[in-house]
Structures are given as C-alpha cells and as structure tokens.
Design a protein around this nucleic acid. Structure first.
Length: 710
DNA sequence: AGCCAGCATG
C-alpha cells in the first residue's frame, strides 16, 4: 500500500527552476545549490526538470565531485520520491562510499512504493555490514515497513534493537513502533510502548486508537480517547476523523454532536477529511438534515464529501435524493469516482430502477471505473435487485477481480430469485477459487438450500462446514434453518429446533414459522405460534395478517373479527399495497383499491379481460382472504383492485408483446394475485417478474420460480 | 541530505 504524499505543484516549480539553473552564480557554490534544488524538485516530484539537472551535473562536474556522497544521496532521494526506484537503486549500487543517509533515502523509496520487504532486506544487509550503524531514521522506515507488511517478528527484532541502542527515545521511532504494534493487531504491545516509554504525542494516541478500532474494540478505543481528554488541546484532524468514524460505527448521534461541538471550540480546522467524516457521521447516525447542513456550509468540497452525502441519503432510504445529488455534483464540475458510482448503483437498486441502472452502467463503461471491484459488486447487486438476474450474472462473469462481496452478491441474488441450484453452483465455484466464505455467504447458501428443500445439505453447512471455515453461526443462519425445515414441511422439527437452540429468537424467525404453517395449512400450530408472536411484538403487522388469513381459511369468522378488533384497539394499520413498474422512463404507481391513475378505466377493463381468460384455466378468486364485511361478488371485485393486478395489466397494455414485465411491490404478494399471475403468464405468453417484500417471483408459462412457497 | 498517522462503497 502506498503512503499518501503531499500534493505536488508542478506548474509553479517549472516556472522558477530554469531561472535558478541559470543563476547558479559561482563555481564555488555549485556544490551546495544543486542539492537544494534537487530537494525542492524531489518535494514537488518534478521528474522532468530533475533529469535535466542530473544531466547537467554529470556533464559539468569535476571528477572529484562525481563521487560526492551528499550529491548522490540527493539524487537517490530525488529519484525515490519520483517513484523511479530502479534508477535510485542503480545510483545506490554505483556509490563506492555510502553513508547512512544513502540507505535511508533508498529505503524510503522502497517503502512508499509498496516494497516493504525490500526495506527489511536492506536493513539486514545494513546491520550485517561492519562500518555503518542504523540510526533513528532507518528504524522509523523499517518499523513502518513491518507495519504495512504485517511482519511482527521483524518488528519485534527492531523493537529490541532500538531499546538497546536507545534509539527508542526518538519520537519518530516510538511512534513508528506504536503504529507497528497497532497495525499488526497487537494493541497490547502498542499500549505497553505508549505507557512505559516517556514522551507521547497525539500521533501515538491516534495510532493506538486506530489499532483498537481495526480490531473491532470500539468501546476500548473510546476509553483511550477518554484518557486523551487531558490533552484535548493537542487533538488534531486525525483524532477528530477517527472519533467521528467511531461515532458513526456506534451510531451514537449524541456523542457525535458533542464531538462536533468540541471541534468547533478547538482551533482544529475542518479539512476535507474531517468534513467528509462529519457528513458520514451524521448520515450513519440517521441525521440527514445535519449532514446536509454541514455539507452546504463547508466550502472546500471534493468527490469524497459529495459521495459521503450521497451515501448518507442512500443509507437513510432517500434513494431519489442520492441520485439527484449526482446531477448537482456534475453541475459543480466534480467528477464522480468509483465510490460515487457504487452509491449511485445502490440507490438505483433501492428503487429497483432497472432503466436508470442501465444508464448508470453505460456511464460507468465510459468512465473507466468499470473494472473496480466495488463498482462491479454494485452492478451485480443493482441488476439482481432490479429483477434482471441474467444481467447480474453477465457482469459477474465479466469481472476481473472478485472479492467475497462479489461472490455473496451473486449467490444471494440467485437465491432471492429462487434459483437455488445456480446459487449453490456459484458457491462451489467460490470455494474452488479459494475465496473463504463468510457470515453473509452462509446466509445466502442456507436460504438457497431452503429454496431447494435440501434439508440434509443445509444442516451439513450449518453444523460442519461453517465450523470448518471458522464462521460462528448467528441468528440469521438459524432463522434460515427454521425456514429450511418448515419449508420442507417439517413444522414440528422447526419448532423443536427453535425451542432447543439457545438463541435469542426475534419476531422474523417466529414469523417464518407462522408463514410456513400458513402455506402448509397447519393452522393449529400456525395460530398458536402467531398468538405467541403478537404477544412478543404487538405491532407485527405481518403476523396479524397471517393470523386472520388462517382464521379465514378455516372459515372461523369469529377469529377474523377478533383479530380485526385487536388491530383496531392497538391502532395497527395494514400498510396499503403499492405496486409500481417502469414504462420507458416513467414509474407508474398503483395503490390497491385506488382509482387515481388517468387510464384507470382501461386498466380495469384489461384486468377483467384477463380474469375472464384465466377462469377457464382454473382460476378461482380467493374470496376467503378478503376481510371486508361485504357480499361475495364484491369480495371478488376487491381482489381485482389489488395493486399488482393493476400493474401487470398496465404493463401488458403498454409494452410490446415479447417484453417481460417487471413489477415491484412493497408487501408480500397475496395468494390470489400469485395464482392469477401464473395463469396470466400462460395466456399472454409473457414473462412476468414481481419483486415483493421478500423475494422475486418469475412467472412463466403458468408457473412461478418460487414453486408456490414464499 | 533522509523518517512515523487519518476520510467515502459493499
């Protein structure tokens, strides 16, 4: 990994450098001046002019000056800073008489070019030599090399050496040492150095705190920060960036605001890093208004701060606003980067806006960010969430680098689309590719097993494979097992599993079981569990719905009335069913029983026409599920007003006969619409894809990819 | 003449 460098200002230095070259006044000062100049050029990384100067030095030098150590060191430093490592190395090798600076200049070059192991090799060479003793510069570099390469052993050897030699009392060395222990996951070592050796600065503290955060010890990090209040006036930008990051991870808005207040009182200036961290903190803590206000008041924005705000909108569910910010950003001439595109794609996915996602994809192809893994990952997720699983797979196959997120996205994409077999195939490929599955992977794998009814395989993954690869099963995995067992009809086993597994089960897990009872028509067990769930959470709307459906299926109207009364008393309202679909660039929104669409009468006519066509194929309106207190014919009418029926009908009216129709629905699809959609796909010979609150349904030729279980 | 930290995506 490269260490960031200060920004270069090539243009400015080009202006005055030739002048300086000409005005090198007398031969006597020609030794000192080129060195100053070379340092300046190294600082600004002006390779072009430096090369010219180097050539001049060679042609104009006296023989005695060629071997001059100072000049060679400056040249090594210059080429190392310009990332011309082979040249620096060549100069180093050519020197007959090196001093310690020659070594440190070259080692710095290696370190900043990601060649930390070369640094450690040079160190070995240096200490085994006779005439030179490594100094504090050498160890600051060497320890930093141990940090980036994770070489704790070498780091500890350096520690021993600097202790014996007394070099450890140099602040740079001490800080490098603390940083080494922090980065190598040895926070105790870092704390020990911090606390036992005299002299600390804010740098040491920042390193330890960041080390703790990297290890996930957030509370401990906060404790160390607490110790730092005594030196609060020493806090710098890094401290605040770290602290805001911590508040964001803890989702502690109160603390975040306190820290923000502290920062305003201190004389630390808010640079782009701090301001991005503040925007991010407010976003992650759910206070989008503060994120926006702060962003607007901060003049020096860059891509990062824009992206942080976009992400803040995205994380809080304001997908349109995130996408709108993209346009604002373009107006301000800020170029998006790979992170911006990832957030935009995720926002697009949040809206299931396939067409917009396609447009973004085209932009990304042109932008040059398409081979960034985070962009590829976001594309896979976008296509999958927008209902185009084939598109998702196409991106997946075209990716050059795949990380665990990539694999997880593809596996869970297939799984959500009910394509369990494909999901498990990708999982096998993942293992074959040597990528370790993680917590998220197994959620997707287990739910794929559930779709396929692979009980034995699922239990094998939970009990054997997860242990083998060292992933501790959590609530989500156990919930998948509940789904797996109950989906296979093993309802009692599922309940026993829940009673015997020592996990803190949540409402989602219990509702999974209720849902399974509903599908498998085991209303006795289903009602018992459902009653239990609504005791646990009196506001779980989904369970009330399932419970009253089960009473209705049993024609137990007293039960239905009881549930409805309960819901009224507890002021629980069913979320109205909303479905929408994209036709060209417009989203058409349909609300159940809502007649506001301008083409409502034609749409209604189309629904009637479709229902008439599918009745001969066996469609029977599920009037038992209608909870309105009305006559049967009217119940049938209510069913025909369901939002997904309206949306499907509209799609059929407005798109060419070969196009597939993609509908998105906010809540679970109802049984009646599900069986109607299956038959509609048959009579119209269309592919209809419906994304409901839980998953995707691919209706084709009279069947659904969920195999009637959802 | 040379040396040690930090932010945004999933």
């Amino acid at each position: 990994m490269l260490t960031p460098r200060p920004p270069t200002n090539t243009r400015a230095s080009l202006k005055y450098v030739p002048l300086l070259l000409k005005t090198s006044p007398t031969p006597s000062s020609s030794l000192a001046d080129p060195i100053k100049l070379l340092n300046k050029l190294a600082e600004t990384r002006n390779l072009k002019v430096g090369k010219v100067l180097h050539a001049q030095l060679i042609t104009s030098s006296h023989a005695s000056e060629i071997g001059d150590v100072f000049r060679s060191n400056s040249l090594i430093n210059f080429y190392a800073k310009c990332d011309e490592i082979p040249v620096a190395r060549h100069l180093f090798d050519q020197m007959s008489d090196r001093n310690i600076v020659s070594w440190s200049a070259l080692m710095t070059g290696y370190l900043h070019n990601g060649l930390a192991l070369e640094v450690l090799g040079l160190l070995k060479e240096l200490v085994s030599g006779e005439n030179l003793r490594p100094n504090e510069y050498i160890f600051a570099i060497a320890l930093s090399s141990c940090s980036v390469s994770g070489r704790v052993e070498e780091g500890k050897q350096c520690h021993g050496y600097v202790l014996k030699s007394g070099l450890v009392f140099h602040q740079y060395v001490k800080n490098a040492l603390i940083h080494m222990y922090s980065r190598c996951m040895d926070v105790e070592g870092a704390m020990w150095v911090l606390n036992t050796l005299p002299g600390y600065d804010i740098f040491s503290y920042n390193s330890v705190v960041n080390g703790l955060i990297d290890l996930g010890y957030l509370r401990e990090a906060l404790e160390v920060l607490g110790c730092m209040v005594t030196i609060r006036n020493a806090w710098d930008n890094v401290t605040f960036v770290t602290l805001f990051g911590l508040c964001a991870r803890l989702k502690d808005l109160k603390l975040g605001m306190q820290v923000h207040g502290q920062m305003l009182k201190s004389d630390v200036e808010s640079d782009v890093f701090v301001s991005s961290a503040i925007v991010d903190m407010y976003g992650k803590c759910g206070n989008i208004a503060n994120a926006r206000t702060f962003f607007c008041g901060f003049p020096n924005r860059n891509v990062v701060s824009w992206t942080a705000l976009m992400a803040a909108y995205f994380q809080n569910g304001y997908f349109e606003e995130a996408l709108h910010l993209f346009m604002e950003m373009e107006v301000h001439d800020v170029m998006p980067n790979e992170y911006s595109f990832a957030v935009l794609l995720n926002s697009s996915a949040g809206l299931s806006a396939l067409r917009l996602g396609d447009l973004l994809h085209a932009r990304i192809e042109k932008s040059g960010f398409k081979d960034h893994t985070i962009v590829g990952n976001a594309l896979v997720i976008m296509y999958s969430k927008s209902g185009n699983i084939i598109g998702a797979n196409k991106v997946f196959l075209g990716m050059i680098f795949r990380d665990s997120v990539t694999w997880n996205a593809m596996i869970s994409g297939y799984s959500h689309h009910g394509l369990g077999k494909e999901a498990l195939n990708v999982f096998q490929d993942m293992l074959a590719a040597g990528v370790s599955p993680n917590y998220v992977t197994f959620i997707a794998v287990l739910s794929a097993c559930a779709h396929l009814g692979l009980v034995q395989e699922g239990l094998y993954y939970l009990n054997q494979l997860m242990k083998q690869v060292g992933v501790e099963p959590g609530l989500e995995h156990y919930t998948c097992i509940v789904g797996l067992l109950s989906r296979a009809g093993l309802l009692d086993e599922a309940e026993n599993f829940m009673r015997s597994t020592p996990v803190k089960w949540d409402v989602i897990a219990w509702r999974t079981l209720v849902n399974a009872c509903h599908v498998h028509r085991n209303y006795g067990l289903g009602k018992r569990i459902a009653e239990f769930v609504i005791q646990m959470d009196p506001h779980d709307v989904g369970t009330y719905t399932l419970l009253s459906n089960m009473y209705a299926k049993e024609r137990r109207w007293d039960g239905v009335v009881k549930i409805r009364k309960l819901m009224r008393e507890r002021n629980i309202k069913k979320e109205p069913g909303v479905s929408w679909l994209e036709i060209r660039n417009t989203a058409h929104v349909f609300v159940s029983e809502d007649k506001k669409h301008p083409e409502y009468s034609q749409i209604h006519e189309k629904v009637q026409e479709l229902l008439a066509k599918i009745k001969p194929l066996g469609y029977v309106p599920d009037i038992a599920s209608v909870l309105h207190d009305v006559e049967d014919e009217q119940k049938e009418a209510y069913l025909s007003y369901h939002s997904e029926k309206l949306a499907i009908a509209y799609g059929l009216m407005k798109t060419p006969s070969e196009a597939s129709i993609r509908v998105i629905k906010n809540i679970r699809m109802c049984d009646d619409c599900h069986s109607a959609a299956k038959l509609i796909s048959k009579v119209t010979n269309r592919v209809i894809i419906v994304r409901d609150a839980n998953r995707f349904h691919h209706f084709q030729d009279g069947g659904c990819s969920c195999a009637d279980y959802w």
